[in-house]
Computed example of a mutant assay.
Amino acid sequence: MPDALVGVVNTRNLYWLALAVLVLVYLVVLWIERSRAGHMAAAVRENEVRVRIIGGRPYLTKLVVFVLAASLATVVGMAYLLLQSGASPATSTADFTLTLLVMVVLGGVGSRWGPWSGRCCTPCSTSGSPSWRTPTRWPGCPPCCASRCRNPCSCWARASSWS
């Protein structure tokens, strides 16, 4: 690892790196989403047969989107590896993977803000400790997610407590 990313003194550099990766991924996704390829990917997602009938190539579109998503996931994974200072099997447990899947499903697939909104309705603790699973509803929790907002780590609860 580079010396600028090692040690407690250089923690600020790791946070700047994480912010840079976040901005880079957001801008690439925004650029692709608004480009012609992004419109084609949205059309393929809605109705693949229709795209094939009007002369599009859905296989090529799916391939490009898959390769781009894999590349972005690789970049984010490298940044995560640097932030965690190593790899361990604990970062890929079934509980963590299912939590991410629930975030995407609750927020909606196919939108840039879907997983973020799904995160607002998903508890952030996966430790299983009883203190995180209390049945109290936190203030600022949206009514549609009242049964899921059971902890102070919810983005929605944080945002409402700041105001």
Rank of each mutant, 00 (worst) to 15 (best):
V109K: 12
P152W: 14
Y15R: 01
S117W: 14
P130T: 14
R12K: 05
V28S: 01
T122V: 09
L30N: 04
R137I: 10
H39R: 08
S129V: 06
V51N: 04
M78P: 01
L72S: 04
T99R: 11
T91P: 02
C145D: 06
S160P: 12
S160F: 02
L82Q: 10
L17M: 10
A4V: 00
C149L: 05
R158E: 04
W116R: 01
V25L: 04
V76T: 11
V21C: 04
A42L: 03
H39A: 08
V29P: 01
D3V: 00
V51G: 02
C145Q: 07
S35W: 13
R34N: 06
V25A: 03
L24V: 05
C149Y: 07
T136C: 00
T93S: 14
R158N: 03
S111H: 06
W31Q: 08
R45F: 03
N151D: 13
L22C: 05
R52Y: 11
R119L: 13
K62Q: 06
L81A: 05
H39V: 10
G107S: 08
C120W: 13
A90L: 13
A146H: 06
P142Q: 02
I32E: 13
L100A: 10
S92P: 02
V21E: 05
S160G: 03
G118H: 01
M78H: 09
P143D: 04
A41E: 10
V23Y: 08
P135K: 03
